[in-house]
């Protein structure tokens, strides 16, 4: 009997300790998370006070416009992370998204320059984008390759196809749709800014307002439970990659409108896209990616570059600050994960 008592006592104290430890870590994570948000807010407050012209409507619309392409891409990336789980090494990730956008832009611009109209060219760009997404889905879901590696391979496929198509040159493009996107405006807000607003509204509504979105979170967060509840995990995961391809295609049209051409080097955007999707998790209480969080971090990245320029701080600092913030957020996320893991 005494042995049993001792055993239980040990067990209880161990549990208590674990609970206390977990609570402590959760508290710690909360503090760091609020700290990160406070840092964001402090930077913004500094810009509002000291950067000349920062709060002017004109400037803010400029920033929304500048964030449109990154935003649309980041939604695609966020969807993939939600559906595939946010484990950085084994979870969902789409490294091909920026290269895919480059390929779609090349297809769109090339078809336009060959004289095909907007309708056919847009359709072709979207088809190519979704096809590349489907290729990712086949590699990840069908062949069971780690998303990190599968999408890295597809990145190279897409980049190679873009080079073959454009021979690494600038392909100029103009069309009625592009003209509308460049110079159109409604209620004093430019077409490109509207594109981000409308796309954001739709994405947030679908992912956070429907049963479908809820199931997507279930599939990413707890695939075993989702499977037990009768959800088709492969379907949902595949869907996110195709959606990501669709986002790449939409972003490609916005890119061509902004640059009046398809240009090499779209792949450069990948880091910013990843940054936006990862930074976004800091705005969620459970450190999961959310579309709203992604939107906030996309705008934050845009405002950061803008504020620095208005303050006449070297643009080289933007990368540094962005990198430091990513490191901070990834650290917080793994900290919070650690508390979940010990539970």
């Amino acid at each position: 009997m005494s042995a049993t008592v001792l055993h239980t006592e040990v067990g209880v104290s161990h549990e208590k300790q674990a609970a206390a430890k977990s609570a402590g870590r959760r508290f710690g994570a909360l503090v760091v998370r609020l700290g990160a948000i406070a840092a964001f807010a402090a930077i913004m407050a500094y810009f509002v006070i000291f950067a000349p012209g920062f709060t002017s409507t004109f400037n803010l619309i400029n920033v929304v416009e500048q964030s449109a392409i990154l935003g649309v891409l980041a939604y695609g990336m966020t969807a993939v992370i939600i559906g595939g789980g946010s484990d950085v090494t084994e979870g969902g990730i789409d490294l091909s998204i920026a290269a895919n956008m480059g390929l779609c832009a090349a297809v769109y611009a090339t078809l336009l320059s060959m004289g095909y109209g907007d309708f056919l060219s847009v359709l072709a760009a979207i088809a190519v984008g979704m096809a590349v997404g489907a290729l990712n889905a086949i590699a990840v879901v069908g062949l069971g390759i780690l998303p990190l590696l599968a999408t890295l391979a597809v990145l190279n496929v897409a980049a190679g196809m873009e080079l073959t198509l454009t021979q690494n040159t600038v392909v100029g493009a103009s069309s009625p749709l592009l003209g509308l996107l460049v110079s159109g405006s409604f209620l004093g807000i430019s077409a490109l800014a509207w594109a981000l607003i409308v796309f954001s509204a739709i994405t947030i509504a679908v992912i956070h307002g429907t049963a479908f979105g809820l199931r997507l979170y279930a599939v990413g967060g707890h695939p075993e439970a989702a499977r037990a509840a009768g959800l088709s995990v492969p379907f949902y995961v595949s869907f996110t990659y195709v959606l990501s391809g669709f986002c790449a295609a939409v972003a490609s049209i916005l890119t061509v409108s902004r640059l009046s051409a398809s240009t090499p080097g779209s792949g450069e955007l990948l880091l910013s896209v990843l940054a936006a999707a990862l930074l976004g998790t800091v705005f969620s209480r459970r450190f999961v990616p959310t579309m709203g969080g992604t939107l906030l971090s996309v705008l934050f990245i845009g405002l950061l570059a803008n504020g620095f320029q208005l303050l006449n701080v070297s643009s080289y600092w933007v990368n540094g600050v962005q990198g430091a913030l990513i490191l901070l957020v990834v650290a917080i996320t793994s900290f919070a994960r650690g508390s979940e893991g010990s539970r």
Binding site: G53, S56, N59, N62, E65, I69, A305, Q309, S315, Y316
Partner: peptide
């Protein structure tokens, strides 16, 4: 004079964004 120096790091998107903000300045 005062310089507002902007290096786009070989990224067209960034150069356009910088020029857009520069016009506003």
């Amino acid at each position: 004079g005062e310089v507002i120096a902007l290096d786009a790091g070989r990224k067209d998107q960034q150069q356009i964004a910088q020029l857009q903000t520069l016009i506003a300045q």
